[in-house]
Design a protein around this nucleic acid. Structure first.
Lengths: 251, 251
DNA sequence: CAACTTCACCATTTGTGAATTGGTTAGGCT
DNA sequence: AGCCTAACCAATTCACAAATGGTGAAGTTG
């Protein structure tokens, strides 16, 4: 299966070998490097910048695998290629890390950081939601709102609260903002992990969040951009205010 | 392979069926729900909170798969279980994904989404930076600023521009905001990948970004919170304005 | 003896195909 | 009209083989 097209480079080992001075030692590696550079230079670009496997390439170039690896190591240090076990050898710089570890960020963040980030992101997301929400979005929010009031346990309430906030983020119709919201949310849940409320089996009927949430959804439904943002900001500030005594009690 | 131990619950279908009033319709779903709740209640916790597959469980409980699925849907909506195709059904809340794939978000985002998100995040990050930046932070920004002016190629300029914006985010002294900035930045680089400028070998001396950046850094240095946010917002809006003709030219 | 060559082995990744599992639909039945 | 059954669909998991860079041990050569 010859996926990758490449041409054979005639060995020019001897030419360079005898021409250089004081290379009684380690000239093999240098010759392989020259061979490899010549190979790369005359190589056409197949889009995918993958080189043949070492075991093939060393035969193609007429050098041993050890020497080829020395040459490849030089090019890798220069940033001209990058390698990975099981993947192969590729031309160019190593691609940026494809994934972000939630726990890594969460481990260096505290609840205050989380609250600050929420206060920055979520009001503006609510503003976008007020601009882009569909009727179905709003209907879904109203349904969650009603279910939130009917929650019979804090656990169920927090699940529904989560759902409502995410519905708002989804209504913003911006997958990137939704992605950032999800990242922030995952970190929040990691940071406040285990911080359960024990003061009552279910949220009281006059819990501030019910009215807060209603104001937010109402503003979104009325396409009141500023009102949605303000309502969300007020809600989060109230949540923050209630969080402080909890933290003090934990000390 | 019976990985999961569970006991058979004797059908109590009839008891509930005849006891309820006015349930000539849709009592099947309710009976299945009661069966399922009884099953979950008497079930011991095997650490792994996995339930048997639907096809087994409906036989065990003596209900049809359709009714079982209705009951499972209710519990899922309550946040008591979570399900996923190919994985199974599990007790508890859906686990948060430990890693977020950049390309997954980037693949569903467009440059407009990116710009909107930047306009939301970065001005507020600049505000935080104005509040928390140390002298070393500001000195580093000024150095990057000077290097940006001295860039000899667009590629080098963009590298330094990147660095400056990240220094600002770092100065906010909020690892969570910095993490969100990094995520956003990685997505931005993926979305606009390959959108290279061909109109000149290096940025012109009167490029708007130079003055923009100077205003931002100056506001941060003077601890002018609102000024830093406003300067960053103006900068990004200018970037956005310059982006539009590029997009039109691409059509 | 020092360097090179060759070979074997290791850890990671990729690819493939079968089996599993939640989600959905069509047909028949009560 | 609603329920049941069966079949199918799509996503996931699992096991296994092949591919690939990384490493070291033995033999070879000058």
């Amino acid at each position: 299966m010859a996926k990758y097209a490449y041409q054979i480079v005639k060995p020019i080992w001897n030419r360079f070998n005898v021409a250089r001075e004081a290379d009684r030692d380690s000239n093999g590696g240098h010759a392989a490097l020259v061979q490899l550079q010549a190979y790369l230079a005359q190589r056409e670009q197949p889009g995918d910048g993958r080189l043949p496997p070492e075991r093939e390439l060393c035969e193609t170039l007429g050098v041993s695998r050890g020497d080829l690896r020395k040459a490849l190591a030089v090019l890798e240090k220069d940033g001209r290629i990058w390698r990975h076990v099981g993947k192969g050898t590729f031309i160019g710089t190593r691609p940026i890390s494809e994934t972000v570890a939630i726990s890594e960020i969460a481990g260096r963040s505290n609840p205050s950081d989380v609250m600050r980030a929420r206060l920055i992101l979520e009001p503006e997301i609510a503003r976008e939601a007020a601009l882009h929400a569909t009727f179905d979005d709003i209907a879904g929010m109203r349904q969650s709102l009603a279910q939130t009031r009917a929650a019979t346990s804090w656990r169920q309430y927090e699940h529904l609260d989560n759902l409502l906030h995410r519905q708002i983020a989804q209504a913003a119709r911006n997958t990137l903002l939704l992605g950032l919201f999800d990242v922030l949310n995952a970190i929040r849940r990691t940071v406040v992990w285990g911080r359960l409320r024990a003061d009552g089996a279910r949220p009281p009927a006059d819990h501030h969040s019910f009215a807060d949430h209603e104001r937010i959804v109402a503003a979104v439904a009325e396409r009141d951009l500023g009102g949605a943002a303000a309502a969300m900001r007020a809600h989060l500030q109230e949540v923050e205010r209630r969080l402080i005594p909890l933290r003090q009690a934990a000390e």
